[in-house]
Structure formats: structure tokens, C-alpha cells
Amino acid sequence: MTDYNFAYLDEQTKRMIRRAILKGLAIPGYQVPFASREMPMPYGWGTGGVQVSAAVLTPDDTFKVIDQGADDTTNAVSIRSFFERTAGVKTTTATSEASVIQTRHRIPEEPLTEDQILVYQVPIPEPLRFLEPRESETRKMHSLEEYGLMHVKLYEDISRHGHIATSYAYPVKVEGRYVMDPSPIPKFDNPKLGDMAAIQLFGAGREQRIYALPPYTQVVSLDFEDHPFEASKADHPCGLCNATDSYLDEVIMDDQGGRMFVCSDTDYCEARRAAGHKGKDAA
């Protein structure tokens, strides 16, 4: 503990990040530029999320890290141990016990409360990036609320696939104003973004942007009148806990076509199994 300042970053840096967070909370969905620091991990591994987490953590917090819903994958384990070492905070895998949750590509199945903060790792914060390559132009489009182009992407989806094929990083409109990239969460999670009790913070380290959703913010997924938004998931129950309401991962079991569907949220699945639920593939 004596080797590092609390939570790795120095106090001035945290102050700068907190300012960006406050501005982001004041203007929901607006991308606030911030002076992203070098972190002891490669870009793409969650440098933005880690900096936001470091800025909001206090010594009394309990910290949880999710990577694609799981608590036990490389990214989750390494970020969790990073804050164990540099902040000495308690860590947990239980969603309800955590006060700060850093996540990559999922929102926990269990509803969050007003006492929690959800920190997202964001690879590309600009929803218009692949439609309009000029950053100067996309900023102007955000400031003038010119979002017709976002629908061109959805139009292309329908004309090519017959339905809106975008299944993750599905664009949303925040409080009727800013169009926002919700980070690559599956569109199954999109309805949870809106009206959430917890504070949601989004950090993009390489792109040097922070944006935020304050509690109980209106978030609407973009769609067409005749092709409404649909939160889709694999049409199976979880093979381990038999849950029908959670987002599922498909796991290939062998090279004979064997596969099983399991909850991507490992904590949710474990809690259900501990409560006695059992799926068809459970040993």
C-alpha cells in the first residue's frame, strides 16, 4: 500500500477525472474530453474504466469487476487484483454486495440500487464513427442534433438482412438529446440502461472521453416505426440454472455439434444454483 497513492492515480489526476464525470452527469450522454493517463495495461483492456473507477473509489467501497458477464476471466481477475493491490479495497463477486462495479460488455442481471455505481469500459465512444469519419463533423452533428445518419445505419441493416441486425453497441438517445454508444453491451441490456437507480459512468481511455447517465435517466433505443427495437437473446433456458430471463452465452462442447447455453452473468447463475434451480446440463 505504501508504494502507491490510493487507487494508483495521483490526487490531481483524480480531481481532473472527477470534474469530467460531474460534467458528464450534468449533460447526460455528452462525451466529455479528459486527459487520459497511461495505465499499466494495454489500451483496449479497460484503461478508461480503470481510471474512472480509480477516481470514484473510496477506501470503504466494495469493488466488483465483470468481463462479458463473468467474474473469473483474465480481464476481470487482473483489474480486480490491480485495485486490491493499489487501493486495498474489499472486492466481491456478488452484485448486491458491491458499491462500485466495473464492467466490460454487460449489465448485471440483478437490478442495481441507488447506492451503486456502474463503470463501463468503452472502446469507441463515438456512435457516428463508422458513418462519418471526420471527428470535427461528428462533434458538429452532436451539437446541432443532426442524427439522421444514425438511422441510415439501421436502414442499411434492414435492407441487407431484413431486420435490424445490430446486436451490440446498439445506439440510444438520452433524454431526447444526445445519441450515445452504450459500449458493446448486447442490445438485450439496452432496456436496463434507462431509468436505472445506479449511476452509470462510461470511460474510454484511448479515445480520452468520459460520459455518464445519472440515475433514472430516459434512454431510448433508436428504431423505425415499422421495425421497432427488440431486446433479443438466445431462445433457450440456461443449461445450468434454467433461467429464462437472463442473457445467454453459447458454449461449444465438442466437434459433433454439441453446445450449451449458459448465463453470461456468472454471479446471477451461481446464486440461482445455490437457491436450488437446476438446468438440464447441470452435473
Binding site: L149, V152, F224, E225, D226
Partner: peptide, 13 residues
């Protein structure tokens, strides 16, 4: 269709 969507049309058909 882009100009139509830019002025607020939201019906794919």
C-alpha cells in the same frame, strides 16, 4: 433515404 431520415422520417417502408 438519408435526407428523408435527416428531416425526421422514421418509417422504413
Amino acid at each position: 433515404g438519408e435526407r428523408l431520415m435527416a428531416v425526421g422520417e422514421r418509417h422504413y417502408g
